[in-house]
Write a protein that binds this DNA or RNA. Sequence first.
DNA 1: CCCGAAGCTGAGCAAGCGCTTAGGGGGACG
DNA 2: CGTCCCCCTAAGCGCTTGCTCAGCTTCGGG
Lengths: 207, 207
Amino acid sequence: MSAAEETGVEDAPWSEVTPEAARRLLVAAVEAFAERGYHATTTRDIAGRAGMSPAALYIHYKTKEELLHRISRIGHDRALRLLEAAAEGEGTAADRLADAVRSFVRWHAERHTTARVVQYELEALGEEHRAEIVGLRRKTDAVVRGIIGEGVRAGEFDVPDVPGTTLAVLSLCIDVARWFNAQGSRTPDEVGTLYADLVLRMVGAQK
Amino acid sequence: MSAAEETGVEDAPWSEVTPEAARRLLVAAVEAFAERGYHATTTRDIAGRAGMSPAALYIHYKTKEELLHRISRIGHDRALRLLEAAAEGEGTAADRLADAVRSFVRWHAERHTTARVVQYELEALGEEHRAEIVGLRRKTDAVVRGIIGEGVRAGEFDVPDVPGTTLAVLSLCIDVARWFNAQGSRTPDEVGTLYADLVLRMVGAQK
DNA sequence: CCCGAAGCTGAGCAAGCGCTTAGGGGGACG
DNA sequence: CGTCCCCCTAAGCGCTTGCTCAGCTTCGGG
């Protein structure tokens, strides 16, 4: 049983967003931002995809930037929760690291439209909103560094540069959102398994 | 001596762009695109950074998109040349792979503003221009897959999934452009060395 | 001394942008 | 039946965008 299933991080993507019209707008925005990027997406395009007039957007969201923030916040929360669930699991450090990478990568592949927005449109956020998100990302980093650190202390891993390797592992996982294509030949599960193996090699875990 | 030095891939970044005013505009565009993204950058901003009026841009470039294409073309050419030089070098597959990763990563770190534009603004290109760039990226992929394949055939590497590992290696290197910060604590050389080591682990090269 | 080409500017156009506002329609409740 | 409130739309405001164009300057060759 994976960390995601254990902790009941449900897959229904935007169930916490209400009312329904606000959710439809948010889903439309995710699609549009992922396809064209935040700055190239117009509020008219978002409203159109949601089957509404341009003005309807401003009943549910103050600005276009608030939409991006909501998406980014929820996405980062979800991804962080996946990692934490894996970190708090049982088994050796290698087990937990593999579980963390598998969940994290699978999320980035399965929800690659969302992940693309979450990971690559950070700089379009306003000052305070960006600061909040950066805080969440530091937590993400800390979780992975924690697992790797434990593995080193337990003698399971051979890692000369823990912060550097942590950075590389996260970078590798995050970049899945950029290249993953749903029409491609690999399923999210396959990519997750491949990457978990590669990461275990990176930290020198004995097989 | 590294592959870059051997083949005289000079570091002077945009020396092939003439006349000087066109080069100034291009350098200004690289900075602006890297900071704000292509769509959020205005032609007035580019011209302003180059110390010219907005209209001056259109004497040297037909459109804003042509500027992006020129940047992307030159950047991809340079990066591909680095990889090819390493691939054609001497030594074991491990030597050549490490050299390739080191050069490629160092380029992405040293010229991270350029690399950011080159790697992450691809979708802003027009139809034919994008197709041309995608062709160059396929060549890049082929070079890395070639080195890894040779290592496997020579019994140097242990890689169950060559295309998947190639993808991961390139993804890891490219993403350096996203997170690398010149004010950070790591030099491009240090990152290159760290990453070369990590990649050798990923392909199971015996030390 | 003049000329044409090349490089650049000031002014500005049409289109599209984020966002606002006045008002309509329909369900819940008295 | 009337009233209130919540969603939503049509229209459009003020501004910025990519790009154009007539005209000015600079400069090498005859």
